[in-house]
Amino acid sequence: MVENRPWLTVATHVVLVIGVLIVAFPIYVTFVASTHSLFDLVRIPMPVLPGSHMVENYLQAISAGLGEASGTAAVGAGRMMFNSLVMALGIAGGKIAISIIAAFAIVYFRFRFRMVAFWMIFITLMLPVEVRILPTYKVVADLGMLDTYGGLIIPLIASATATFMFRQVFMAVPDELAEAARIDGAGPLRFFWDVLLPLSRTNIAALFVILFIYGWNQYLWPLLITTDPEMVTIVISINRMLSVGDDQAEWQIAMATTMLAMLPPVLVVVFMQRLFVKGLVETEK
């Protein structure tokens, strides 16, 4: 602060604390809801302090979900979190792998159709899944990839943003390094593996954090292509738990599942904050 105004400092902190509380409030309510029995939960008003059913609610959510009684198959959050994890890791790893080699080709080689390739990758920025839902679904169905991990991952791994980011990183690598490598007799792949990869380690890590969150939080795509309860991801399962028509939704189990669905990406952001911020800023350049 430029000038010393103690009352303003206090006011500022008060505003910020209120802001933090408002932002955190929905999570708190959800947590409270996940620790009560349904009987306590539907009493009006809803309890404002955590209840005593936390352990049993979470155990039920992880192992059996809503269970057979609800008419849906007994697939627990454990299995669904595993599916989400496979998808998130697959998307993050896949995007990074194919983008880094594509950027390497574009930066370090001269060949015909180089610009064509560049523009083809650029175009993917303008074609989010949302604008080509049906035809993409049809392609995946024709390839027999519905309800498979491949179908969840592969159609999403093309990435203009990641390719451009690695292109930036490689452009900043001094030419002398490539020259020296050539003089020492290293071929392009050796140069890529021993020089470029180690140099881009932090960029890869930062991008991985962002893409992991992106992959974990996918909604429309898994919604379209998974029908087998064993293949459902945790983010799309919550909505299915609450769509019960006239029956009383099992809010306490659904909210425990919601907490579990948020936990991995939130932990990643909190504990890898520096990489996360770096990734956010870099992918937007």
Partner: peptide, 20 residues
């Protein structure tokens, strides 16, 4: 304290507010 909601999926954010 303020950046973590970025990690919450839009659909999950919807569910949080739906509950309230």
């Amino acid at each position: 304290l303020l950046i973590w909601p970025y990690a919450v999926a839009p659909a999950v954010a919807g569910i949080l507010w739906l509950l309230m």
